[in-house]
Design a binder for these strands. Structure first.
Length: 588
RNA sequence: CGGGGCGUAGCUCAGCUUGGUAGAGCGCCCGGUUUGGGACCGGGAGGUCGCAGGUUCGAAUCCUGUCGCCCCGACCA
C-alpha cells in the first residue's frame, strides 16, 4: 500500500503544545498522532490509529495462540449487573454514570467482568463447554480524579480485557498461566521490559494476582525486588514476621516523664539523654511504638477510628493502608475525631495505661487496635503512656498489651527482608502495563454462573480476568523511542514500513520517487510517500524525523547519478544505493 | 479535594505592574523568486483578549465572581 502525503490527514506542529508535559504526549501531538478532546480523552488521527492497530494486532495474535476468542461488548452498559456485584457503589466517583431519557442509570464500563459473566451464563450450562477464554479490545472509561501525562493516564483508554471460565481450580490455574504466558510473549514482541510482581487483588476480589510492571522512573507503582528473585508491588508486600521472643524474665514496664516529646525524634533524644538503655546501646526510633490514628470511611458512609501500632521508624503507607482496610477509604483523623475520644492523649497515645488497656475493642476506648507484624509477642517498646508528657518504657507485647489483629500498613524500605527469604529487597518504580487476576468465584457466585459437572451437580464457575493497557503501551513505547528530533518507532509498531521523501523540484526526482515507491509496494511494504511538491527539503526531513518511521528513503539530488539514500532514523546513517536496488536492500 | 500556574489570532507567546480601544514569530491565502536541513520578497485573511458583573469618560490591563486547562499532591490501569 502507498499513502501519499498530498492527500493524507496529517498536520505536524512546529512547536510543542502548551498543555503537554511528558515526552510521549508532546511528540504524539506534534507529529499528528493524537489530539486532546477533553482532559484524559483523545482523538486518534490516522497515524495514531495505525500504530494502535499494530499493537492490537500483536495482542490478537497472541490471544489466538492462547486459545482466546475475540468478542466486543458495548462501552455503554446498564446499571443492573454492576449493582448485583456491588461495583456500582464500590467504584465510587471513578465510574462514569449517566441516565438515559427514561431516567434509567447507565454507565461507561471501567471493565467488563459482569457482562462477560452474564453472556457465558446465558449460553453455557455444562462443564463440557469449559474451559473458555474470551477477550475484547475496547475502550474503558474511568473518571480519574486527575488524568495526566497524556495517554499514560487517560479517562478513556483502550484495553484488551480477557476472561477465563473454568469449573475446577486446576483449570483456572491453567487458564491463568496461558494468559500469563501470552503476556510475556506480547511484551517481548513489543520490546517492553517488564517485571511480573505480586499484586493486591483489591476490590476485584479473588486470590492470585500479578501485575506486569514496566520499570520506569515515571511509573506510579512502587515495587520491590530481591536478588533472589522475589518481586512484588508494595501494596501486596507481606512483612517477614520475626519469631516471638521469650517473655519470661523481662523487666517490668516503667513510666518516665518525657515532657515536650511530641515526635518520635524528640522522644528518642530524651530517652537517650535521660533514660539510657541498661546495656548502653542507644535507643533508636525502631525501639519506639508509634500509634497512628486512622479514620476509615466505610461504604455505607459510617466512620470508624482505627489505631495502628508500628515501629517508630516506619510511616504508614496510605496505599498499603487502603489495601489493608479495603473497601473502606482512609482519611487522617480530624480534631473532631479526637474530641469524640477524650481518652486519647495526642502525642502520647499508647495501648497501656496505669488504669488498664486504652486501645483495643475491649479497652476503655473501644477503638480497634491493630499491630504491625513486627510487633510480636515478647518485643519490648517505648510508647505513650496516655498521659501528657509521659511515656512508658519496656512495654512488652503479649504481656502488657495485645492488639485486635495485624495490619500491613507500614511503609516498605530498601533493605527489608523479602518474605520468601530471598534476601533484602530494593525499591523500583514501574508503570502497570498488564494485570492478571484469578477472580475465583466472586463474580460467578453473585451473578449465578453455574454449570453441571460430570456428576450432574451444579458447580459455580471459577474465573480469571486479564487486562493489558493498549493505549498506555503505545505511550510507553513513544516514551522509550525518541530523540531530540522526534519519534523513532520500533519496526513492529511503526505506522508505515518505509517513509519515502522526494526532495527538490526536478520532475526527474519525482519520477524516480514514483519508481522507488512502486518497487517498495511490489515488495510488500506499506509506504508513506512525501510527494508534496512545494515543500522544502528541510521541512520534509524534519517531518520525517518527527513522525519517526524507522526506515526512510531520500530521493533527491542523487537521482542524477541513479542513486537514492537509505536513511536509518535510529542510527541516523545514510547509505546511497542504486534506485533499482532500494526495495531489495530494505527487504534484506 | 488541597497547593501552584495559566486562559490574548489556527499554534507558541508578548502586552497587564503604570487603563487610552491589540501585537510578534510560525502557520494559512494570492503573486513572484527559491528547493539537501524547518527559504525569501511583496500583498492579504484571521481575535466578542475564557465568561459575567463592577470601578472608570474609557478595561486585555484594576476589582469581584465564575468556568476551563496544565503541573504537584491525595486517588487511580
Amino acid at each position: 500500500m502507498v499513502t501519499r502525503l498530498t492527500n493524507y490527514f496529517l498536520k505536524t506542529l512546529r512547536e510543542d503544545p502548551s498543555d503537554a508535559e511528558v515526552i510521549s504526549h508532546r511528540l504524539l501531538v506534534r507529529a499528528g498522532y493524537i489530539r486532546r478532546q477533553a482532559p484524559g480523552v483523545f482523538a486518534w488521527l490516522p497515524l495514531g490509529l495505525k500504530v494502535k492497530g499494530k499493537i492490537e494486532q500483536i495482542i490478537r495474535e497472541e490471544m489466538t495462540r492462547a486459545g482466546a476468542h475475540e468478542v466486543h461488548f458495548p462501552a455503554l452498559l446498564p446499571r443492573e449487573p454492576y449493582e448485583v456485584t456491588g461495583r456500582w457503589d464500590e467504584y465510587g466517583d471513578g465510574l462514569f454514570r449517566l441516565k438515559d431519557r427514561k431516567g434509567s442509570d447507565m454507565l461507561l464500563a471501567p471493565t467488563h467482568e459482569e457482562v462477560f459473566t452474564l453472556l457465558v451464563k446465558d449460553l453455557y450450562s455444562s462443564y463440557k463447554d469449559l474451559p473458555l477464554s474470551i477477550y475484547q479490545i475496547q475502550d474503558k472509561y474511568r473518571d480519574e480524579a486527575r488524568p495526566r501525562a497524556g495517554l499514560l493516564r487517560g479517562r478513556e483508554f483502550t484495553m484488551k480485557d480477557a476472561y477465563s471460565f473454568d469449573y475446577t481450580d486446576a483449570g483456572l490455574d491453567a487458564s491463568y498461566m496461558s494468559q500469563r504466558d501470552a503476556y510475556e510473549r506480547i511484551f517481548t514482541r513489543l520490546g517492553l521490559e517488564y517485571a511480573i510482581v505480586k499484586a493486591d487483588a483489591g476490590a476485584m476480589g479473588g486470590s492470585r494476582s500479578e501485575e506486569f510492571l514496566h520499570p520506569t522512573p515515571v511509573g506510579e507503582d512502587t515495587f520491590v525486588r530481591s536478588a533472589g528473585g522475589y518481586e512484588a508491588n508494595v501494596e501486596a508486600w507481606t512483612t517477614l514476621v520475626p519469631p516471638t521472643l521469650d517473655i519470661e524474665g523481662l523487666a517490668a514496664a516503667e513510666v518516665f516523664d518525657t515532657p515536650n516529646t511530641p515526635t518520635i525524634q524528640t522522644l528518642v533524644d530524651v530517652a537517650n539523654a535521660e533514660h539510657p538503655r541498661s546495656n548502653g546501646e542507644a535507643w533508636t526510633a525502631a525501639d519506639t511504638l508509634k500509634n497512628v490514628v486512622l479514620a476509615l470511611k466505610h461504604l455505607d458512609g459510617t466512620r470508624e477510628l482505627v489505631i495502628v501500632g508500628l515501629p517508630g521508624d516506619r510511616d504508614v503507607d496510605l496505599k498499603r493502608a487502603e489495601v489493608a482496610f479495603a473497601p473502606a477509604e482512609i482519611e487522617a483523623a480530624t480534631e473532631a475525631d479526637f474530641a469524640k475520644h477524650p481518652g486519647l492523649v495526642k502525642g502520647y497515645i499508647g495501648p497501656w495505661s496505669e488504669n488498664g488497656p486504652v486501645l483495643g475493642e475491649k479497652s476503655a476506648t473501644g477503638i480497634r487496635y491493630l499491630l504491625d507484624p513486627r510487633v510480636v509477642a515478647g518485643t519490648s517498646w517505648i510508647t505513650g503512656a496516655n498521659v501528657d508528657g509521659k511515656h512508658v518504657f519496656g512495654l512488652v507485647a503479649g504481656r502488657d498489651f495485645v492488639g485486635d489483629g495485624v495490619a500491613e500498613v507500614a511503609d516498605v524500605r530498601a533493605g527489608d527482608p523479602a518474605p520468601d527469604g530471598s534476601g533484602p529487597v530494593e525499591l523500583a518504580r514501574g508503570m502497570e502495563i498488564g494485570h492478571v487476576f484469578q477472580l475465583g468465584r466472586k463474580y460467578a457466585e453473585s451473578l449465578g454462573l453455574k454449570v453441571l459437572d460430570e456428576n450432574g451437580k451444579l458447580v459455580t464457575v471459577t474465573m480469571g480476568s486479564y487486562g493489558i493497557g493498549v493505549t498506555r503501551i503505545l505511550a510507553i513505547i513513544a516514551e522509550l523511542n525518541n530523540d531530540d528530533n522526534g519519534l523513532i518507532w520500533p519496526e513492529t509498531v511503526a505506522p508505515f514500513d518505509v517513509h519515502v521523501v522526494a526532495t527538490g523540484k526536478d520532475p526527474a526526482v519525482f519520477d524516480a520517487a514514483e519508481t522507488v515507491v512502486a518497487d517498495l509496494e511490489a515488495a510488500g511494504f506499506d509506504v508513506l510517500f512525501d510527494d508534496r511538491p512545494k515543500v522544502s527539503p528541510g521541512v520534509k526531513f524534519g517531518d520525517a524525523e518527527l513522525i519517526g518511521i524507522p526506515k526512510i528513503v531520500i530521493v533527491g539530488r542523487g537521482v542524477a547519478d541513479g542513486v537514492v539514500e537509505l536513511w536509518d532514523r535510529r542510527s541516523n546513517e545514510r547509505t546511497p544505493v542504486a534506485i533499482a536496488d532500494a526495495a531489495s536492500r530494505l527487504r534484506g
